[in-house]
Design a protein around this nucleic acid. Structure first.
Lengths: 349, 349
DNA sequence: TTGAAAGCGGTACCAA
DNA sequence: TTGGTACCGCTTTCAA
């Protein structure tokens, strides 16, 4: 009776998901699970004839090894994570693209998470850290101590577009030199009164762009505003900013923290009858696709390369590279188009 | 001696990654692993005092439960996958966004994979299927039999922008009606000779857009081309198409399979001195951000909603919904801008 | 070359 | 309320 009950339980359990396990294959092929495992891994300690029997059994039973069992035994996930503040906009897609491509080539799956600055972001990232062999973290997503915690747990971390944290690699793009280049270019147009639109508190990138902008103005002997005009990252933020600018009087130039902001601004200004660049010049940052069609002067960043690099750095760490953390800085370049004003000598594109 | 060796081995193994396990916590708190597990799961069969001891031990040992062990025991991954042909372009990002957002809310991680029409795509998807509780597959990524195989294995699948496969849910956007709307709108402009740019073989979407286009022309009593002008999905493909069109003689309108193609075409035509829409009208499909700034007349699709819906469908299946497969069709709408020609009566945007 | 068995880190049933 | 223990599915010694 008891025996019978036990059987019933066992059967019921098993039927929960009728997955074929390595034991089924072993039984079917008349060998041990160890041998099946070896055959699976392509070990050369398996007799050809045996291997054939195993392969036949695998085929017949349509067996697929469980990643979970495998990962648990191997103590590795064969997966990497990537964390973004948000996935919207044309900007992050490129980073993911570069990252995923490299990770896939290296045989690692990619887990993606966007925090949407939710309160639970910290927990979500910690949870994610428990599912991967390495983690890439973009910008302002979680607090430094969460990053530190992940590092502490032995999960390699690479930071993207974010200030360094002890024990983690990082990749970012150059901002200060390019901010100078932007200002110099605009000054060469004869523009004098320049303002910066964007919130330095939002990200390391914006912060660097703002200070670079201000310093460049001072170096050029031009009047630098005390403060940036704070704004978010979206087109709507640009639209709102337009209203404020119109109310407060237009400068010669508005240097925007990113393209979406700049595009929204240009659009709204145009809607209000202000001509860009005749009445006011505008520049962006990122060089998203829409910037080309809007003729927006901006700064190009190698986003895809950033993703790819992060994936490779992570791979090195996971593979046991114990050297000092690396901090790569990718170069960016000014892309001159229409919104900075007429430029007789420079080449358009 | 043997004992000593065993110990050494054990220690070496353990130090491979000094992770704290539930057994360590149990020992530390002076309880059984079962109790720790219960405390972890928030079971109310744990005495408050005991729980406190367990919590203290967890805290002290900085214990984090292993997702792997948990998943293996629970026989679930708490993760979903999503497969794309490619991640580039402003288009897919929106789908991922909608998908990830819902999945995250439902407590599932998201694994992302792009196949880049690699030969190994089939294997990559099968591998991915082994790491998730459900899979969303976009467009032409893998063969139908791979999808069938995944379904066979008991992993719920939802297809996006792709023809149905037995046993899988699907979400797609409406193409035929909108193709008619596009043609009718263009005909109202007085345009007569219309051609279609894009390759129906590339995707179900393009195929439907092409046949809808052709049928609409016939219904309108206009001459319909026998064949589309084949082209890929990128701006470059549009640039190449421009050269061919210029060589072969311009039609009144070029209806493009997607926006990037249309934008590349418009750009290249402009570069060749052809005025859009005066000399030739152009329309796209997708309504990506750049389309707004280029004034491209196009068709808007609710990409984010598609992703969100796929995630919810998957959730229902994973949760045991055994009803007949659902096939949702999302409505799309014509967005009239400049590139279709002057339209005195309609509203711009 | 092969097999037995001890893990990997949890969960949950059964008995106490 | 608790503890003992048998799994979950695979990998990898160790011994034969």
């Amino acid at each position: 009776m008891t025996e019978h009950d036990g059987d019933a339980v066992k059967r019921r359990r098993a039927s929960a998901r009728a997955s074929v396990t390595i034991r089924d294959v072993a039984r079917h092929a008349g060998v041990s699970v160890a041998t099946v495992s070896r055959a699976l891994r392509g070990s050369d300690l398996v007799h050809p004839a045996t291997r054939e029997r195993v392969d036949a059994a695998i085929e017949e039973l349509r067996f697929t090894p469980s990643q979970l069992g495998r990962s648990l035994a191997e103590r590795r996930h064969a997966a990497n994570g990537i964390v973004f503040p948000d996935l919207s906009g044309p900007f992050y897609a490129e980073v993911v693209l570069g990252y995923e491509e490299v990770a896939a080539t290296l045989g690692r799956s990619v887990l993606i998470l966007s925090t949407h600055n939710r309160d639970s972001a910290d927990d979500m990232v910690l949870d994610l850290a428990g599912r991967v062999d390495g983690l890439a973290v973009f910008g302002r997503t979680v607090h430094d101590d969460v990053v530190a915690e992940v590092v502490q747990r032995g999960v390699p971390v690479v930071l993207m577009a974010r200030t360094e944290v002890a024990g983690a690699d990082s990749v970012r793009t150059e901002n200060v030199l390019t901010a100078h280049a932007v200002v110099e270019h605009l000054a060469a147009h004869g523009h004098r009164r320049m303002v910066f639109l964007g919130d330095p508190v939002d990200s390391t990138d914006v912060s660097e762009r703002w200070t670079g902008f201000r310093d460049a103005l001072q170096q050029a002997g031009l009047e630098a505003p005390e403060q940036p005009i704070t704004a978010g990252f979206k087109e709507d933020d640009g639209v709102r900013a337009a209203a404020d600018l119109l109310a407060g009087g237009l400068p010669d130039v508005v240097v925007c923290a990113n393209d979406e902001l700049a595009l929204g601004l240009v659009e709204a200004l145009a809607g209000a009858g202000v001509r860009v660049p005749d009445d006011v010049a505008v520049t962006g940052w990122d060089d998203v696709m829409a910037a080309r069609y809007a003729g927006l002067t901006t700064v190009r960043q190698p986003m895809r390369d950033m993703g790819a690099r992060a994936a490779r750095m992570l791979d090195a760490r996971i593979s046991g590279d114990g050297s000092e953390p690396r901090h790569d800085v990718l170069t960016t370049q000014l892309v001159v188009r229409r919104t900075c004003g007429p430029h007789p000598k420079e080449a358009h594109r």
